[in-house]
Simulated scan of single mutants.
Amino acid sequence: MVSEGEVRCRISDEDIIEGYLRRKVNGEATANPRFIVDNMEEELYTREPWLLPQPTDPILNPREWFYLGKRNWKYLHAEGVHCEGAWILIQGRTPILSKESGEVIGATMRFRYCFRNKNDTTAMAHTSWFMREYRLCDKTKPYNTRHVLCKITCNL
């Protein structure tokens, strides 16, 4: 489901979960596409989005990037990062269903990058940067895996 302010991705949610994220988590010997930046770890949540590597590929929309990494639980809601900005949750967990079986295979959460002026302790200014975080669904611990694949878009 595409939300307001987000460009529709050319890669389906199911392909992101099954084709990329699950293979990475399971350690399958497959080459990640060159448009996915791997091993971002916590940097994805602690750096301003415009400072992240931004590879291009014909399969991607302009100003759309993918990053594989592990979620650090201290950034549970991606707030409180080491800069003046933060990824603020704007849409909670949305299940991703397999088209074939109808079972839940993953989930997505949506964030928007906001920042605070140095002397302002309350107001957050919105930016045009969005992140959709994809997680696997483990039947024993739903939505609890640390591995994530994130799509970041800049809608100028």
Results as ranks from 00 to 15, higher is better:
residue 43 E to Q: 13
residue 76 L to Q: 12
residue 41 E to F: 04
residue 72 N to S: 14
residue 73 W to T: 15
residue 40 M to E: 07
residue 27 G to W: 05
residue 86 A to H: 02
residue 51 L to Q: 13
residue 112 R to I: 01
residue 58 P to S: 15
residue 51 L to H: 15
residue 48 E to Q: 12
residue 27 G to K: 03
residue 114 C to V: 14
residue 83 C to G: 14
residue 81 V to H: 09
residue 124 M to V: 08
residue 94 T to W: 00
residue 114 C to R: 15
residue 46 T to D: 13
residue 72 N to P: 06
residue 102 G to P: 01
residue 60 L to T: 03
residue 62 P to W: 02
residue 51 L to I: 10
residue 65 W to T: 02
residue 75 Y to L: 08
residue 59 I to P: 04
residue 44 L to I: 14
residue 100 E to Q: 15
residue 93 R to H: 01
residue 50 W to M: 09
residue 47 R to W: 08
residue 51 L to P: 00
residue 41 E to M: 06
residue 49 P to N: 07
residue 73 W to V: 12
residue 122 T to L: 11
residue 120 D to P: 02
residue 74 K to T: 12
residue 104 V to W: 01
residue 52 L to R: 09
residue 33 P to I: 06
residue 56 T to Y: 02
residue 66 F to E: 00
residue 48 E to T: 12
residue 119 N to P: 00
residue 57 D to L: 03
residue 88 I to G: 00
residue 94 T to L: 05
residue 51 L to V: 12
residue 107 A to L: 05
residue 41 E to G: 05
residue 49 P to A: 09
residue 72 N to E: 10
residue 85 G to H: 05
residue 62 P to A: 13
residue 50 W to G: 07
residue 78 A to W: 02
residue 90 I to P: 00
residue 57 D to S: 14
residue 103 E to Q: 13
residue 27 G to E: 04
residue 39 N to C: 08
residue 30 T to M: 15
residue 55 P to W: 05
residue 109 M to Q: 07
residue 95 P to S: 03
residue 115 F to L: 10
residue 90 I to Y: 00
residue 96 I to C: 04
residue 77 H to G: 05
residue 60 L to V: 05
residue 102 G to H: 09
residue 102 G to V: 10
residue 68 L to Y: 12
residue 98 S to K: 01
residue 95 P to G: 01
residue 82 H to K: 11
residue 65 W to D: 01
residue 56 T to A: 09
residue 74 K to Y: 12
residue 99 K to V: 07
residue 85 G to D: 04
residue 82 H to F: 10
residue 120 D to F: 04
residue 81 V to T: 13
residue 39 N to G: 05
residue 40 M to H: 03
residue 98 S to T: 04
residue 87 W to L: 06
residue 91 Q to K: 09
residue 69 G to E: 02
residue 88 I to R: 11
residue 116 R to Y: 08
residue 82 H to I: 07
residue 74 K to M: 13
residue 114 C to N: 13
residue 79 E to G: 08
residue 123 A to R: 15
residue 85 G to Y: 04
residue 122 T to E: 11
residue 81 V to G: 15
residue 31 A to W: 01
residue 28 E to G: 02
residue 81 V to D: 08
residue 85 G to V: 09
residue 72 N to C: 09
residue 43 E to R: 13
residue 101 S to F: 04
residue 100 E to L: 13
residue 123 A to C: 07
residue 30 T to A: 12
residue 88 I to K: 14
residue 112 R to V: 01
residue 111 F to Q: 00
residue 109 M to H: 03
residue 58 P to K: 09
residue 50 W to I: 06
residue 45 Y to S: 10
residue 104 V to Y: 00
residue 115 F to E: 11
residue 36 I to K: 01
residue 120 D to S: 11
residue 75 Y to I: 02
residue 120 D to R: 05
residue 121 T to V: 08
residue 96 I to Q: 03
residue 111 F to P: 01
residue 67 Y to D: 05
residue 52 L to Y: 08
residue 76 L to D: 12
residue 100 E to N: 11
residue 86 A to K: 14
residue 35 F to C: 04
